[in-house]
Structure formats: structure tokens, C-alpha cells
Design a binder for these strands. Sequence first.
DNA 1: TTGTAGGCGTTATCAT
DNA 2: ATGATAACGCCTACAA
Lengths: 336, 336
Amino acid sequence: MATMDKKNVSMNDVAVAAGVSLKTVSRVINEPDSVRESTRDKVHSAMEALGFRTNFAARSLKLGRYGCIGVVMFHLSGGAVDMIDGIADAAEERGFALTMIKKCAGEKMTLADAARRMSQLPVDGMIFNLRQMVDDFDTFEAPKDLKTVIITPMEHPTCSTVSDDQEGGARMACEHFLNRGHKNVYFVSGKKESLSSQCRMKGWRAALEARGIEPSEPLQGDWNADSGYAAGLVLADKPDCTAILAANDCMANGVMMALHDKGLSVPDDVSVIGFDDELYKTIPNSILTSVKFRHRELGIRALNEVVAGLEAPSSRSRTLVSGVLVERSSVKDLRA
Amino acid sequence: MATMDKKNVSMNDVAVAAGVSLKTVSRVINEPDSVRESTRDKVHSAMEALGFRTNFAARSLKLGRYGCIGVVMFHLSGGAVDMIDGIADAAEERGFALTMIKKCAGEKMTLADAARRMSQLPVDGMIFNLRQMVDDFDTFEAPKDLKTVIITPMEHPTCSTVSDDQEGGARMACEHFLNRGHKNVYFVSGKKESLSSQCRMKGWRAALEARGIEPSEPLQGDWNADSGYAAGLVLADKPDCTAILAANDCMANGVMMALHDKGLSVPDDVSVIGFDDELYKTIPNSILTSVKFRHRELGIRALNEVVAGLEAPSSRSRTLVSGVLVERSSVKDLRA
DNA sequence: TTGTAGGCGTTATCAT
DNA sequence: ATGATAACGCCTACAA
């Protein structure tokens, strides 16, 4: 009478228990409307009683697809959460699950490696979340039957890519300064190897050069507040410094604290803009104007692009998700 | 001559191309040592030439296991990254991949739902990351053949659980105050529905009561700095307030700013401790002493517990990962 | 509306 | 050291 120890309950077991054929059970699962209600109920109770769960392996072997999208995290850091969130939501909505692996092991971190590992897993397509440069970026070729989307600001010769428009965001911030009468903008960068930092710097340069302004030497930071503070101390001594763009909010805050400690006030003496719009979480009444990227949107786009590519694997696209300037009061209008 | 459009390259195709039997190809993959080297080479070249990749579905159908662990994120927030990181690393190390789904949809968020969805996916076991209460927590029973570990501070009747020792962390912080001569500790909570906040509050209460101190009414916050600031304004007016425990660093910072604005200094007039040790990222020269939890370790433990349970699915354990007090200088020793 | 036969691509059991 | 053959559990013709 006790529950049997049968390893796996198959559709056949259910069929026997319900006194119907195997195919009928299959129908109850896949096209319930084509089965008489009384039969359906019998089958359902049998499934319930036996604890039947459809076998993923058998199903996908037959169907030739998995209903899963692979996600490779080359870099798992703070901003990634919102992106994963977007990917996960979009996946759920389209009936896909996510198969995730991490590939951060400093030394041998190539796209080919990641692709090889992924092709052994139950995935119909994959997303690479790449925030740093890798050796084989330009030479990498995705498996023909596995649609691949790379999240990266760089263009790729064969794969679709999705990215925040970091460069555009930086340009936007600079123009915000310049349009308000500032004659120059100083820049505090993040870690050197970070692509985000590089792109933000590029945008800053481009915006200045477009107005015929020679960009000054950027100050090297490391994303954390202390490095911003150090940069702020330096900049406080530059008489021509009225505008500072910091590559993230934490450093921007460091900059502001340094200015304050030097007797300068924001925005009356110096204006500041940061990135990521997260200071308000930590600082009460935060006044920092900041460029915010829509990471969630980014994730959604990436997933949609993969799913779209399932039909046309050879298609290639480049998606840029624009940033938004969240205005508070850390920028002074010098024209006033 | 051009590459054929054959949908899938199977082991059979490789076998034919290499002029060997199907089983030999299989051997080359799974037990290479039992195949003569010359044969092995032939097979390898054939695989290369045809672009063979082993079929996950067929393999797991035969093997009866997937080599994947399911992860359900009921709540995807900042602190989660480090935990996912730990899970992913531990998984990688043990040769498992992760299959992730998100279940945040406010209304109908039950463990049974999550388990049902997971049982349709290629997983050998699963981890629920639960940070809030759900309706069916106590009544939930995991599928017998799917080892389930829940990340939650609550005890579960049948499933293994893993958690930070949030209560212990809060106690530790309180004792840190009390051992330094403080006679009372005020508490600023996080969002009401958060289990973390509840546990931290519980630990605070317990520590005070253990010393015969009547806990005052906790101040309600919402995790963000502004709510901490509001609480700080209130507490600044309490003459007996020498020690404040805030349920996270952001609110602790809000509290400190309010105290400052009220002309009180930290730690000379009032001592403060926070949670999560993340303020140093945003505030230069941060002085805040903070209780830090090892989220990465938590993830590792959770994964290891699942993998261990693959052998003995019925086992049940409860793991607590202790926190660490990161001391800076926001606490004054009143005995001095 | 329901049942039967075969095959998806592996791995395992035998034999050679 | 290698090969033939039978499962694994599901789905899709085709038949009844």
C-alpha cells in the first residue's frame, strides 16, 4: 500500500493507472482540448497520485529544442543584478528558462571557451555578458546553430550585440554642462581595464572636441569614493575647474566631499555629474545629477534579440539602449 | 563540397565518417583511455570536421541526470549578486550548471508554484532564494526526487535551509555597544515585510532583554538613506540616546547626517552601527562600524548542501553563516 | 476520440 | 580494443 520506490514515473505508468493509452496521456498534457473531460480527469488524478513529472530530457530530445537560454556572466558585479532581472523577466514572459554559468577565471577567459561549455548544456541560444576585453573577441565565431548575443559596447563582426549607450550618456552629461555656460569639463575615470569607463571617457572626449575644447588629462580613479576624494582634492586647486564628470556616483560623491573639505560648494563653486544614479540610496537629500542607464531594459532587449534570432540565426543586429540624465541640483547654470 | 545543411551531427555521423562503430565514438568521449590512440585521433578529426557536439537531451535521458541545479530567485536585489556569485562558483567547481528562474510576481508567489515549474526543467536539485514570507512555507513539500534547499532565516519542517545568522549579527552589534558602557540601543528597522529586517530586530531585542533592558519602540525605515535621516532627527532629541543600530548602512548614513545636522557628533555624542558594510564604497573615509554578512559563502554552502543531498535526498540540515563585525570608529567606549 | 509503431541521440550490456 | 543491439521517455505519423 505504501508508495512504491519506482525510480521514475513515466507517461506509460500514468496511462496504465488511468486505464487509457499512452497517447491519451500525452494529449492531456499537450492538447487537453482534444480529450473528453471525464478521461482528462482520470488522467489528471493518476498523474497526481503517482507524482508524475514530464521528463525534460525525453521531451527535448524529441522536440529538438530546450526552451532555455544560456547566460554567461564574465563579470558578476553590482550593476549586473538589474540586467539579470530584465533577462529573467523577459525569459519568463516568453516561456524560457535561463541556464547560467560564470566565467571569471582571470587567465583563460575566452568567448570560445564559454561557447564550448554552453554547447554542452540545454540551451537554444545564448547571451554573453562581457564587460571587459577578451583575447578572441574579434576572431570568435558562434556555433552556427546557437544564436549568440553579446552584451558589450564593442561591435562584433558576426554576433548581435546589445549595450548601454555609455558614450552617448557621457556626451549628454558634457553637453548639459556646456549648454549651461561651462567652458571645460574635467573627468574622473573608473578602473582602466573597464570598458564602461573607457566608453564614458570616450564620450566625454568627443563632446569636448566637438566644441573645439581640448580635453584635459583625465584623473584616474577606481570606482570607489576614496579615489574620487583624491581626485577632488586635485581638482579643487584648479582655478578653471567649474565642471566635473565622474565615471560613477560613488566617485562623484568623493569628489563632492573633497570640494567641501576644500571650502568649495557644489554647485555654487563647482558643478558635478555622476553615473548610475544610485547615490540617493545612501545619501539623504542627495543633490547629485547623474546619468542613469536602464540595465533592466538592456537585459530585456538582449533576451528578445536571442529569441528573435532563434528563427533567423544568421541575423546580426546592434542595439544601443540610451541613458537618461536624472537632474537634481549639482549643476549650476553659469549663464544666469 | 560546401558544408551540408544536416541539422544535427550525431555520434553516428561521426562514426561513419571515422569508419568506426558508434560505441567507439562514445568511448572516445567518455573513456578515452580504453581506445587505441590511432583510432582516437581518427574520431577526433571526424568530430572536428563535422562540428559534432554531444546532445544534452539524449545524454541526460540515458543517464537519468542533468548536471544542473535549479535556482529560484524570489527576490532579486543588490545583496543577491554575491550570493549568486558564490552559488555559480561552487557549481562550476563541482561541474554543475545553474538553471535559473525568477518568481517575484507579487500576488501568487508560492513554493509549490516554483517547485512545479522547476520540475519541468533540467535540474537534479534546487535552491530557493527566499527573502520574504510566502503563504505555503510551512506546508510545502519538495518533490521526493528533487533535493531542495531553501535560503531563509526560518526553519522548515522538511527542507534543508541555509541562512546568514542575521539575528546573531544584530546581537553581536548590540553587545558591542553594551560592552562599551552603553545603557541602551535604539533600532532603525528596514521594510516591515523583509525577513532580514525582522531577524535583525529580533536579535536586537534579544540582546537587550538578555541584559534586562527594555527595548524602546523601533523606528520604522525603508532601507534608504532618507528614512534613516528622518529617524536620526527623532533620535537626536532623545537625551538618553547614545547608541543607534540601523538595519543597513544606507540608513545608518542617513542617521549620521541627521545627527550632524542637529549638532551632534559621531561617535562623541552618539555611536552608530550599520549592516552590510558597503558605505565605504560611497563615502570617502567612512567611519561606520558595520555588521557584514558573507553572502558569497552563503551561496557556496547552499550549493554544496544541494549537491550533498543528491545522494541522500531525505537528509535535512540547517546551516547558519555567521556575520562579522567590521570595526571602524563610529562607536565610542563610554568606560574610558 | 483513442491506440500502435517507430525513432530522436545517447549509453550500457553483452559479445567478439 | 571494438562492435551490434537494446533501452531511456516522449512525440508524431498513421490507423482504427
